[in-house]
């Protein structure tokens, strides 16, 4: 090696100097200062704007509304929570939670084969196709997806046309004649609401289930088969328990998203309300912010319990 002109000979070199050098030295001497500088902007934003708003909302749920003037009374009371227990409001809560549960179960059933195929059998190019095949619907416009189903479920839409061509229209009519799930057409029935919910949240179930299944070593399944288990026994005793954390992780999304949604049941559904619609109506036209706030606490509490149970089941490792 030739001797470079810039090679220093002292054991300690001078700093770079300037503001950058001084700041850099200060951060090196005091790493906590750097941490403080890095964390302050996001914490100010999320901690003050976001958490502050959430707490403000929570506090308002303990206020009440004066029935004559329609003004918010800023005094602590549990009266508003009492109103949640009215039969009409309880109805809304039960309906929403039931819907969220059914949507979650249906999503898990449809998601499993896709996730299993993508995790175990898709290789190379097909793996990418499957990944994008799930990511694109996940990220594509929520409203467009809802709109697409409005087209599909409309009386004059494609679904009726297909059933008509197959001479199966009586199936749809018979189903729509049923109480609760039926209605004038699929686009104004709870069945329609359910279908759209499942469609829109399905990708949120596929991804965590796939992640969980990818961690199952292939030889585990071979070992099970080797020990004489039928494919069905392998599925029930080996695959399902190992996929369960993924399913629970996915259900956090499907459950939470269904609990809070107010647009899908408004566009494709009946006049029966869901929690999200009730919140929207109470804060909007009715101006009853306390009741709206109390309603939002319901999904938060339900999700809190759900997350706690999920954490105990070890679902967070699959996220």
């Amino acid at each position: 090696m030739s001797s470079a002109a810039s090679a220093p000979s002292a054991a300690m070199l001078p700093g770079r100097g300037g503001l950058g050098g001084a700041l850099s030295d200060a951060f090196w001497r005091n790493p906590k200062l750097l941490l403080f500088v890095m964390l302050t902007p996001p914490l100010l934003w999320l901690g003050i704007i976001y958490l502050g708003s959430l707490f403000a909302l929570l506090i308002q749920s303990f206020f009440s509304i004066d029935e004559f003037s329609g003004l918010v009374v800023r005094e602590f009371t549990l009266k508003t929570y009492g109103e949640l227990l009215r039969p009409s409001n309880l109805d809304i809560i039960v309906r929403t939670v039931t819907m969220a549960g059914l949507v979650t179960i249906a999503s898990a059933i449809i998601a499993f084969p896709i996730a299993y195929f993508a995790a175990r059998y898709a290789k190379g190019r097909w793996k990418a196709v499957f990944y994008l095949g799930v990511m694109l619907p996940l990220w594509s416009s929520y409203l467009v997806k809802v709109y697409a189903w409005k087209l599909i479920l409309a009386k004059e839409g494609i679904l009726s046309w297909i059933f008509d061509k197959l001479h199966l229209t009586f199936l749809i009519e018979g189903w729509l004649a049923l109480p609760v799930v039926g209605g004038n057409s699929l686009s104004v029935s709870l069945t329609g609401t359910f279908l759209v919910f499942v469609y829109v949240w399905l990708p949120f179930m596929i991804l965590p289930v796939q992640a969980a299944l990818e961690r199952v070593p292939g030889n585990l399944l071979e070992a099970s088969a080797d020990l004489g288990a039928s494919p069905r026994q392998t599925f029930v005793n080996v695959l399902l328990p190992l996929a369960l954390p993924g399913i629970i992780a996915g259900s956090i999304f499907t459950f939470s998203l269904t609990l809070g949604d107010y647009i899908i049941p408004q566009i494709i559904g009946t006049s029966h309300r869901f929690i999200g619609m009730a919140v929207y109506a109470h804060q909007g036209t009715a101006g009853n912010i306390p009741l709206a706030a109390a309603f939002t606490v319901v999904p938060v509490v339900i999700m809190g319990i759900y997350l706690w149970l999920a954490k105990r089941a070890g679902a967070f490792n699959a996220l």
């Binding site: 959430l54 308002q60 609990l259 809070g260 912010i289 709206a292 938060v300």
Partner: peptide
């Protein structure tokens, strides 16, 4: 993680 409606109504009332 929380339903969007909660974020929305919190910000609005804030």
């Amino acid at each position: 993680a929380l339903p969007g409606i909660i974020t929305g109504i919190s910000l609005r009332s804030a």
